[in-house]
Structure formats: structure tokens, C-alpha cells
Design a protein around this nucleic acid. Structure first.
Length: 259
DNA sequence: ATGGCCTGATCTTCAGGA
């Protein structure tokens, strides 16, 4: 089974690329982030024509997550149980379902903006709720993974130049501690291989030739439990999809499972 | 080419992204 995660930065703007990519890669299950659409605008019909079911948690121009599957989509849970909310709003940042042999989450962790911004405290609270919500399945015997845009670079090597991140979000000890606590529920970081250069970055800023200069970050992560991790045969970042006009600023992370 | 983003909505300017 081929499973992947991809922050598409608007599923409406990305639709032609998304459909072509699903067909060319033969992906069975895709976790999507930043749909940037309402539930009504979500392209369920176009996906169904390709043979995919979909489940979506989206409310408009910001955030939004989805699961797309051609191997089953059952027991959908929309949203994050215990979600702390931001300014009184429960944003669409999580959805989970059973897709064939695996239980899967698609998550879009809050950005945090600045370390002293309320959004950063929200980010850490959101991680706490995520940990509590996934702990049971993480320790279970069924293949299970939390996949998505974590908005945290796990190590200094996961950004192109750590010296440029002094005081910035995405690399702070508190954010990395949140990742470590999440792993302690029984999850491990399924690190993909890069298709070029020496590090599997998954995001490159649109600005200042970030992609051609490989000024990237690895912030799109696959956290799998032991049965999931044992089934991994290959994993890679599809940087080809970051190329050219009409690309998202994130590349898909693909995982091939022997399940 | 010596400087260079993209998205959708509040829609010709903005917030947000990371």
C-alpha cells in the first residue's frame, strides 16, 4: 500500500496537479493539509471519478485537512478531541479514519507565528491534545500513523541553515519536546529519503528562490507506531512535485508499506 | 535577470504562511 501526506496549499488551486499526481504515483491513501476551501468546495466528485473516497474537515480560506483513499475510508473522526481552540474557534486541523489495514490521521499543526505570540502557546496546547488523543492507537497492534504538516523541524539538520532560525518558531526546544512526548506514546519518525541532495526537506519558501537554492525544511512528518514502522518498505520526498508553475510550497512525503 | 512568492477573500490590498 502506498500512503502519502501533502500540504497542497489550496486544494482548489492544486486540483489539476493533485489528480495527475494521484494517477501517476498510484497512491492509495493521501493525507491532505491546507485545503483552504469550504466543505462544499472540496473536489469530492473529481476524486470519486478517479476511484477515491474522501473525508474532509474544512471551513473556508484557512487551514483545512482531508483524507483521500481508494482502499476504504471508515470510522471517520472529524477534528481533534480536546482541541484547545484559538480565540474561541476550533479550527479544522485534524481528521482521522481507518483506511484498509491502517488507522490514519491527517494533521495540520498550528504555525505558532512568533515565540511570544498567543498562537505559539496554542501550538503547544494543540500538541498536548494530540498526544492524548492518539496515545491509545499509538500503543495498539494495528498499523497507525499521524501524518501531516507538523510545523516543527525535529533537528537542526532539518533546516537549511540553523543559524538563521535564532529565536524563530519551528525549532525551539519546547516544540521539539512536544514532538518527543508524542513519540513516547509509541510512535517513531519515519524519515524519508531525499530524491536529490543530502537531506529530505519537504518545504521550501516560494520567495527568494528557496527551492532552486534548496533552502528547505523538513516539517511534514510521518509518525508511525511499531506495526506501521515495521511495514515500511520505502519512503521518499517527491521533490519533483515542488517543481514548476503551479506547485505547492510543500512536496508530498510518500511511504510504501508491506501490509 | 544582481533580485526574485502564493492563496483566497475583506477582492486592486490584505492576512497568513514558516
Amino acid at each position: 500500500m502506498r500512503i502519502a501526506t501533502w500540504n497542497v496549499n489550496s486544494i482548489t488551486a492544486r486540483l489539476p496537479r493533485l489528480l495527475a499526481w494521484l494517477e501517476s504515483t498510484g497512491t492509495d491513501v493521501l493525507c491532505v493539509q491546507e485545503t483552504k476551501c469550504t466543505a462544499e468546495q472540496f473536489p469530492a466528485d473529481e476524486l470519486r471519478e478517479l476511484g477515491y473516497e474522501s473525508a474532509v474537515n474544512a471551513t473556508g480560506r484557512w487551514n483545512g485537512v482531508a483524507l483521500i483513499s481508494r482502499v476504504g475510508l471508515e470510522d471517520v473522526v472529524t477534528g481533534l478531541p480536546g482541541d484547545p481552540g484559538y480565540e474561541g474557534v476550533h479550527e479544522p486541523r485534524a481528521i482521522s479514519a481507518t483506511c484498509g489495514p491502517a488507522r490514519v490521521w491527517s494533521v495540520y499543526v498550528p504555525n505558532g507565528r512568533e515565540v511570544d505570540h498567543p498562537h505559539y502557546a496554542y501550538k503547544l496546547q494543540w500538541f498536548e491534545a494530540l498526544k492524548a488523543a492518539v496515545a491509545g492507537d499509538a500503543g495498539g497492534s494495528r498499523p497507525f500513523a499521524v501524518m501531516g504538516d507538523y510545523n516543527v523541524a525535529p533537528t537542526d539538520d532539518d533546516v537549511w541553515d540553523i543559524s538563521l532560525f535564532d529565536g524563530a518558531t519551528h525549532v525551539t526546544p519546547a516544540e521539539r519536546a512536544a514532538l518527543a512526548e508524542l513519540r513516547e506514546t509509541g510512535l517513531s519518525d519515519v524519515v524519508p529519503r531525499p530524491l536529490k541532495y543530502d537531506h529530505p526537506f519537504t518545504y521550501w519558501d516560494y520567495r527568494q528562490l528557496g527551492f532552486p537554492k534548496n533552502r528547505g525544511m523538513r516539517i511534514d512528518l510521518v509518525y508511525g507506531n511499531e506495526p506501521f514502522a515495521k511495514a515500511v518498505k520505502d519512503s521518499y520526498v517527491d521533490r519533483e512535485e515542488r517543481k514548476g508553475k503551479g506547485a505547492s510550497d510543500h512536496a508530498p512525503v510518500v511511504v510504501d508499506l508491506d501490509v
